[in-house]
Amino acid sequence: MDDSPRTRALAFLRTHARPLERRLGDLLLGEPHPVVSACAVLDLLSGHRNPDGGLGHALEPDVRAPDSQPLAADFALEVTELVLASQAGADEGVRDRVAAFARGLVPYLASVAAPDGGLPIVLPTVAAHPRAAHWGDGEFPPALNPTAGIVARLRAAGVADPWLDTAETFCRERIEALDDRPDGHTAANVLRFLAASPDQDWARPRLAALGGRLGELSLFQLYPGEGYGLTPVDLAPLPDNPLRAFIPDDAVAAHLRALAAAQCPDGGWPVPWEPPGPAAALEWRGVRTVRSAWILAAH
């Protein structure tokens, strides 16, 4: 019987995960009919849409609020990035559907952005609903996390819009004023923005400066360690990702070994923080299992 990490991961997803991660697992882990799976993933994302055009209803499992949140849009755009990176990403119809889905988020994002284009990661309305402790009272200022990552992913999806131009200017100005040691989440958003910037004369030196300081950042583990932190394979999951240029090969190898060793007996991966309830914990395990098994398969 096949007892590979991929097979065990798929078994976990089929037993424990929500439909979104089950279909995403089908897409990323080599099941047949990738275009059908990709369209199913986009349909499931659309099931979280609200009348304002945004997304909610616990799409990002740590925020159980039904109302729309920038965090949920960011989560969805990361999923569309995975769709485009899959076998189905070469299909023109899938690319058109991704673009339409991403374009549909823009009116909502523009409506909750500051006048200068910046987005907060969550809105204060999260405080009325169950949520992970790190979201507190939901009072967050507009910041590079999530604005820079959202801008980069919308551009990658083929979206053009006046608000997006304003948000891009916000990101450039904040990046130029960035201190030497942003936290790992901010750095990840900034690095994605810089790597995707069409103005590489401006972006390249800033990319090199921040990429060279990864080992100094809080909430980032250049090598495996205790506690929570983003890792090199979170930042640059595939071998051809341009951000790999800033990560030592032995750091990638160490994290791949740690990732493989972390697979649980049930085939899933654990969650290294405290979700707001048992449903959220299982949902996050599904999210992490899809991504972890995909990363390992790519290597």
Rank of each mutant, 00 (worst) to 15 (best):
residue 41 V to D: 12
residue 174 R to P: 06
residue 35 V to D: 14
residue 142 P to N: 05
residue 85 A to Q: 07
residue 278 P to G: 13
residue 110 A to W: 08
residue 219 L to F: 09
residue 274 E to P: 02
residue 8 R to P: 01
residue 51 P to A: 15
residue 207 L to A: 13
residue 95 R to Y: 13
residue 146 P to R: 06
residue 262 A to Y: 01
residue 254 A to R: 05
residue 96 D to K: 06
residue 186 T to Y: 03
residue 285 R to S: 15
residue 205 P to H: 12
residue 209 A to Q: 10
residue 49 R to A: 14
residue 263 Q to L: 02
residue 35 V to F: 04
residue 92 E to G: 12
residue 267 G to K: 03
residue 282 L to N: 07
residue 139 E to G: 06
residue 20 L to M: 11
residue 69 Q to P: 01
residue 16 H to D: 08
residue 178 L to I: 05
residue 97 R to A: 14
residue 264 C to E: 13
residue 182 P to M: 04
residue 208 A to N: 15
residue 205 P to L: 13
residue 11 A to N: 01
residue 94 V to A: 06
residue 234 D to C: 10
residue 97 R to F: 06
residue 148 A to G: 03
residue 25 G to P: 09
residue 267 G to E: 03
residue 107 P to I: 11
residue 31 E to P: 01
residue 192 R to P: 10
residue 259 L to D: 01
residue 120 P to F: 08
residue 93 G to A: 10
residue 197 S to H: 10
residue 79 V to A: 03
residue 258 A to E: 02
residue 285 R to E: 14
residue 216 E to G: 08
residue 85 A to V: 00
residue 227 G to S: 02
residue 191 L to K: 10
residue 1 M to N: 12
residue 236 A to D: 05
residue 15 T to R: 15
residue 271 V to Q: 04
residue 57 H to R: 12
residue 227 G to P: 04
residue 6 R to H: 00
residue 240 D to H: 10
residue 213 R to T: 09
residue 213 R to G: 06
residue 253 A to K: 01
residue 2 D to K: 02
residue 279 A to E: 15
residue 196 A to D: 07
residue 141 P to E: 07
residue 195 A to F: 12
residue 17 A to W: 13
